[in-house]
């Protein structure tokens, strides 16, 4: 493996772009293919299918074995609301291997003292997300309870196809939210993707327990999302 190829691969991953490393196991070919890039010949459809599937495997083409290692961006959680639940969720997400960012325009909540070591933006979601859009590999967790803050990023997450969109609030609160989203032009089918009340139904009561329920639901959504083939099972 050339060192420049590794550098390019890591740069693509840092920039959150899906990329495949295509390696002929007889040593005749080794290159990166970025998502959306067109390539020639019989490998084209195989590469396209691998991006759709999101999993790595060996493929035989005209007697040559190619290993396609599919690198999708690392899973990321964007939390709207610098609240107690977020304080508990931040370290849990890090342990589980998820990057986490918190956005809350209320400067009294979004203080570095409350969120040491966590990426924190004391700004409106509209401003933070403007230049760095959400993507399919991001989970959006809206927990401020304030429609003025939560509604925009929820709509943005549904539009971006985030693998998880969860919103805090009772069924009554969520009912009102669905009315507002409907008025804003979000179809019922799309709005139905919102997980509300947020989190797995495990009777969570404290902020820490609710954070566990949310993280469990995020993991379930990522690992059981459609179009992903079987991954390795546990054992060993």
């Amino acid at each position: 493996m050339e060192q420049t190829l590794l550098q390019d691969l890591n740069a693509e991953r840092q920039a959150r772009r899906a990329v495949i490393r295509l390696t002929a196991l007889d040593g005749s070919d080794d290159r990166l293919v970025r998502e959306g890039e067109t390539i020639e010949g019989p490998l084209a459809s195989i590469v396209e299918a691998a991006f759709r599937r999101g999993t790595s495997r060996i493929e035989e083409v005209y007697g040559t074995s190619y290993f396609l290692n599919v690198h999708v961006p690392p899973p990321r959680i964007v939390v709207i609301g610098a609240v107690h639940i977020s304080q508990a969720l931040a370290p849990m997400a890090a342990i589980a291997g998820y990057d986490l960012t918190i956005i809350d325009p209320r400067t009294a909540f979004a203080t570095p003292e409350r969120f040491e070591g966590t990426a924190l933006f004391a700004d409106w979601p509209e401003d933070v997300l403007k230049d760095a859009p959400l993507d399919r590999y991001t989970a959006l967790v809206a927990v401020t309870h304030d429609p003025k803050i939560d509604d925009y990023p929820i709509q943005a997450a549904l539009k971006a196809g985030c693998f998880y969109v969860g919103a805090l609030g009772s069924r009554k609160t969520h009912g009102k939210r669905l009315e507002r989203l409907g008025e804003a032009g979000v179809s019922e089918d799309v709005a139905a993707r919102i997980k509300a009340p947020i989190g797995l139904d495990i009777g969570a009561a404290s902020p820490g327990e609710i954070a566990v329920a949310i993280l469990g639901e995020i993991i379930e959504s990522l690992r059981r999302r459609p179009l992903v083939g079987p991954s390795g099972s546990t054992g060993g």
Binding site: N10, R13, R16, P74, G97, L120, L129, D131, A132
Partner: peptide, 24 residues
């Protein structure tokens, strides 16, 4: 505290910091 000049895209990935290929 982070300011408006820092964008979400500029936050380095903690997950990738521990990644074997990044370490390599």
């Amino acid at each position: 505290m982070m300011t408006q000049s820092i964008e979400l895209a500029a936050v380095p990935s903690a997950v990738l910091a521990d990644d074997p290929l990044v370490i390599a």
